[in-house]
């Protein structure tokens, strides 16, 4: 299957920038998959594909408008916020346990440094 370069623009005035690649049998599927894999999180306002190895002018822009590119409904659940501050939490809990003579992590394997 052909490899297609995926290009995007973050703002309308940007030049096309290479953002990745997809495998697809033809240009229609390449555009569909490029949009679904690289522009679903509001990464840009325009997208395009070019069969890898072809000349710069072989670029085929996608037709979905910037307003709906990346979806229109609430995507906040995709942000993994539950891990924010997890390092500090671990230190705090480890300190509390240490006061009681306990530890929560196993000894580090030999040779792994500190």
């Amino acid at each position: 299957m052909d490899v297609w370069d995926v290009l995007g623009k973050r703002t309308v005035t940007d030049e096309w920038t290479l953002v990745g690649g997809v495998k697809a049998p033809d240009v229609e599927m390449a555009l569909l998959l490029a949009r679904e894999t690289h522009f679903r999180h509001k990464e840009g306002v325009a997208y395009a594909v070019r069969r890898r190895g072809e000349a710069a002018d072989a670029l085929v822009p996608g037709t979905w408008p910037a307003e709906t590119l990346g979806g229109v409904t609430d995507r906040s659940y995709r942000r993994q916020e539950a891990y924010a501050g997890v390092g500090a939490k671990l230190k705090r809990v480890a300190a509390q346990l240490a006061e009681r003579g306990l530890r929560i992590d196993r000894p580090r394997p030999p040779g792994s440094g500190s």
Partner: peptide, 16 residues
């Protein structure tokens, strides 16, 4: 692989 992402995105849309 690419379709895996695409189909998963559709799943998330439906839930949204």
């Amino acid at each position: 692989l690419e379709e895996d992402l695409a189909f998963s995105s559709i799943a998330q849309d439906e839930m949204a």
